[in-house]
């Protein structure tokens, strides 16, 4: 059996919509603004292909023409002519109805760090800063293990309330924040960052974020006022160690 062109069109559009929506069911939605653009061009492309030959264009448009012209289709016509304005009205209503959602904002999660960080009464050069304890991983594994363990203590005393006991950002308080605390699990989070960046983020917290990360400043505390330099470095060792990630190193 040959599927009518118009039905083919509708099915294809639905399939495209399904493909774009599918990631959302697995927790990584494609943003609505982008789906709108994707769908626009998907529909246009399907239309272009379907009208690229005279024959298929005819097949596509004949039922539509018939709907308008054919006296025998009066009932269907009336239904369609009633339903289309209603669909339009629903869309318009949903677009303009007031909502409590905060306006869309462009926010950089990992903004470019400043070149220097002032903390603990000295200046750190973020461009070259390295974790002073990192080298122990090779030189003195036993000592390194000890430090990681101490870092774990720091983490569970301070960080886990938000970042979670499995470092997956599902801590007790996590849902109360906007923006959400970031997870450390996964290969595309802290693995992409240098330790100096992490050190900067921990040290200055939410208030230390530059303008591109506004307006919703993260509620992360300014840890340099609460922890010592060594404690921060140890906690960093711990979060990399626990998640099995290796910090990005400086290009040589």
């Amino acid at each position: 059996m040959k599927i009518p062109k118009l039905l083919q069109f509708a099915v294809l559009v639905l399939i495209a919509y399904g493909i774009f929506k599918a990631p959302g069911w697995f927790g990584v939605p494609i943003p609505g603004s982008l789906i709108m653009m994707y769908m626009f061009f998907a529909v246009v492309t399907i239309l272009l292909v379907m009208t690229s030959t005279e024959k298929s264009a005819q097949e596509l448009f004949t039922p539509i023409k018939a709907l308008v012209d054919d006296p025998s289709k009066a009932m269907t016509r009336n239904v369609v002519f009633a339903v289309i304005p209603i669909i339009g009205a629903v869309i318009v209503f949903n677009q303009v109805k007031p909502s409590f959602e905060a306006p869309v904002e462009l926010r950089a999660t990992h903004p470019a760090p400043p070149s220097t960080l002032r903390a603990f009464n000295k200046s750190f050069n973020i461009g070259t800063l390295e974790n002073p304890m990192r080298k122990l991983a090779k030189e003195d594994p036993a000592k390194f293990k000890e430090l990681v363990k101490e870092g774990g203590v720091v983490y569970y005393r301070n960080c886990f309330y938000c970042h979670g006991d499995k470092l997956d950002s599902k801590g007790h308080f996590a849902q109360g924040f906007n923006p959400l605390p970031l997870p450390f699990q996964g290969k595309d989070t802290i693995a992409q960052l240098q330790e100096s960046f992490v050190f900067w983020r921990i040290s200055t917290g939410g208030p230390g974020l530059p303008k591109e990360s506004t307006p919703w400043l993260s509620s992360m505390p300014i840890w340099k006022d609460l922890l010592t330099e060594d404690e921060i470095w140890k906690a960093i060792l711990f979060i990399y160690d626990y998640t099995g990630n290796v910090p990005r190193s400086w290009e040589k």
């Binding site: 070149s115 050069n125 461009g127």
Partner: peptide, 17 residues
């Protein structure tokens, strides 16, 4: 100054020290 004197692009020496 930071257009060049910054650790990311390194078009010019860093000036921290």
């Amino acid at each position: 100054c930071t257009l060049c004197h910054n650790p990311v692009v390194k078009r010019a020496p860093l000036l921290e020290s």
